[in-house]
Amino acid sequence: MTELAEIYLGNLAENATLSERIEKARQSEGFLEVDITEVDSRKGRIYARSNSGIDVGIVKSRDWLLREGDVLETAQGKLVLIHLRSQKVLVITFSEKISNFPIKLIHLGHVLGNHHWPIIVQDNKIYVELITDAEVVESTIRDFHIPGLQLEYELRSPHEHLSFSQHSEHHHHS
């Protein structure tokens, strides 16, 4: 049977009484922990399997993101603690002056946008969220043959997650 969680209670980092409720729930089988991806954290409907093997369906509004430490309550009164998995991102850097080939760069940006691959530009690096197969993204970028373009992967912990969503606001509004 799938547990359905629709009631948002808050975040452990911001609510001390939730920690006490979690501790009590841990001792009484009324507690579930789920690991989800950054991509899933945005969805309105999330299907996950708890660490104890119980299926959990999470239903929420799409206008806010689930965060590490968020707590929801199921229809049966069980508490669900959310953990975000580490996030693998593709990082594009350039070893040469990129002003030498603006047309190729504009074309690259156009193609990334056409594929709807979320990007963030930060500190002269382009971070690409891997919402599709990494090899596909990598070969698409390499096809541009931009001199000095370098690709590497970074693993970001849940506390260093890049928020690629157009909804950077992740607080729940009731």
Rank of each mutant, 00 (worst) to 15 (best):
E73V: 07
S28T: 05
N11E: 05
L149E: 00
I98R: 13
R45K: 11
I131N: 09
S139Q: 14
D70P: 03
R21K: 14
E6S: 02
G109L: 12
T37E: 09
R62E: 13
I46N: 07
D35F: 10
H167K: 15
H173R: 09
S52R: 14
R21F: 04
L18V: 01
F164N: 13
T93S: 14
L12S: 05
E152P: 01
I141V: 14
E6K: 15
F31S: 09
I106C: 13
S168E: 09
E129T: 06
V34F: 01
G57E: 10
I120P: 05
R142D: 03
H173V: 08
L79I: 02
G30D: 05
K97M: 02
A25T: 01
A13N: 10
L105K: 15
H159K: 15
V39K: 11
L149G: 02
S28P: 02
H161M: 06
I7V: 04
G57A: 06
S139G: 03
L84P: 01
T140A: 13
Y127T: 04
I146V: 10
Q150S: 13
P158C: 11
G57H: 04
L9F: 08
H167I: 09
L12Q: 07
H171D: 05
S165Q: 14
V128Q: 08
I98S: 10
V71Q: 01
V121L: 14
S52F: 10
I98D: 02
E160V: 12
P158N: 13
I126G: 02
V128L: 06
S174D: 05
S99M: 02
K43H: 13
I98F: 08
G148W: 12
Y127R: 05
N11W: 04
L4D: 03
P158F: 13
P118N: 10
V111H: 05
T132N: 11
S50V: 03
D143C: 06
E23M: 11
I7H: 15
E96W: 00
E135G: 08
G44P: 05
G53Q: 10
R42Y: 13
V71I: 11
A75R: 06
S99K: 06
I126P: 01
D55Q: 11
S157P: 13
P102D: 14
L4R: 10
L105Q: 15
D70C: 08
R26F: 13
T140L: 06
S61P: 04
L9D: 06
P147T: 14
Q87W: 00
D35Y: 11
H161R: 13
S157W: 08
L9E: 07
I120N: 11
A13V: 03
H107N: 15
A16K: 07
M1Q: 07
L130N: 01
R42S: 12
E29I: 00
G148R: 05
S86H: 14
D143W: 01
L151N: 06
Y47C: 04
K88G: 01
H115L: 09
L32M: 09
F31C: 08
I126N: 03
L84S: 03
A5P: 03
W64C: 05
H116N: 13
F94V: 02
H145N: 15
E135W: 11
Q122G: 00
V34Y: 01
I7E: 06
L155Y: 07
R156C: 00
H172T: 08
S86K: 13
K24P: 06
P158V: 12
H83V: 02
W64N: 09
A48Q: 00
